[in-house]
Design a protein around this nucleic acid. Sequence first.
DNA 1: CGCGAGATTGAAACATGTTCTAATCCGACT
DNA 2: AGTCGGATTAGAACATGTTTCAATCTCGCG
Lengths: 223, 223
Amino acid sequence: MPAPPVARLAANQLRRMRRIVDAAVELAEQGGFEAVRLRDVAERSDVALGTLYKYFRSKEDILLFALNEEVTRLEQALAARPPAGATPYRRVVEFFRRSSRALIGRAPFARALIRSLTGSEDLAVQVAAFQLRMARLVAAALRGEPPDLSAPLDAGAAAGRTRDRRDASAGDRLEQRERDIAQTLMHTWFSALVGWAAGLHNERAVVEQVRVGADLILGPEER
Amino acid sequence: MPAPPVARLAANQLRRMRRIVDAAVELAEQGGFEAVRLRDVAERSDVALGTLYKYFRSKEDILLFALNEEVTRLEQALAARPPAGATPYRRVVEFFRRSSRALIGRAPFARALIRSLTGSEDLAVQVAAFQLRMARLVAAALRGEPPDLSAPLDAGAAAGRTRDRRDASAGDRLEQRERDIAQTLMHTWFSALVGWAAGLHNERAVVEQVRVGADLILGPEER
DNA sequence: CGCGAGATTGAAACATGTTCTAATCCGACT
DNA sequence: AGTCGGATTAGAACATGTTTCAATCTCGCG
């Protein structure tokens, strides 16, 4: 068995990993991506520099791990209190309002996460996991249900779930449309976030751009 | 007068700048972002390392300059032969098909450009220029006209052009809707490209995701 | 032509991500 | 308890983006 990602780690190894991630997050919260100097992370988490690389492949890898934990937090918050609203449009806008708030509320940290997401090479698995989970949350908000917290995340399952677009039952087609909407809105949100991270515009503009997208797609139905 | 961006440079300074950009592009075409080692760029362009930093603020800055030249090429190609198609939907899909091809056809170079776009800090101006020009091209494709090649690009003009959303004439509202569609589709395309750059999916998937977005937005009208 | 300001050079220096190594530690098994 | 293999450590080493500096060059001007 080659390197198991997270499972099969002794308790104190898990603790070490946690300390590493926590230290990285603290530094990122204060000073963004560049402030996460791995020598500092190592010192703060009482770990040797070399040991960092036993747990994570790169600096981005650490931050992407934190990102996925962040998404978990978001999932739980949404499960506890799903976006309210009488229509898919309202719920999905509310969803992105809250998601944007959660991220942008910690601006340097958020910038660091986005930079890790986009400045990666061969970190496709983490990027895929993020996109998949966010798309699921969007879909849940669209239909007004709490997100399904029990679901596989491996790429294979994700690929298998999207079957060929031809020959699908009516229900399938509805679900497909929902996934399509979720994907498009997530793209819009993500790209707007990148613009925000680059300093192009502020939080309100991010939400507004997603709202515009949702309006274009869902507007024809009841708003 | 603080640092003039491009104008007011002696002829041989322009030549130097060109050599720098050309060298960076060559290296990026071969090996992507990491292959653009500034020491190599300096050597290839017969310029001292320190001189690079007189012309560009960072490695990303060089590549973003190349990106904007690339967009210029795209603009000219589109002006010469605008996307054909009887409907906005068909034209816009054709537009993104060609744009994706132009980028992904040189995969390592494209990845380097995307990484520069997203991994920047205080390079907002270039990012804004890119988004603005691409959105204009999308809008041109939507209405089936060649792009307007004579237009200011500075951020002030861009900000001024987007007036308050309330109180607008009917024509304004149409134009506004067009810009909204263009923006949303560009976001979708960009985010799909980031996914491609991360290794999530291939060129066909990029175009398909934009097509889905265009379908959701324009589908209700004639396809 | 000769001058002087600014541009360029070559090289060193610095910062930080990443890798490597020898020594040490730790925890499970006999 | 003793031993062994893998994990950890401290620290050096390496790669590359970025900065700095003194020396040199270039070019327009008097």
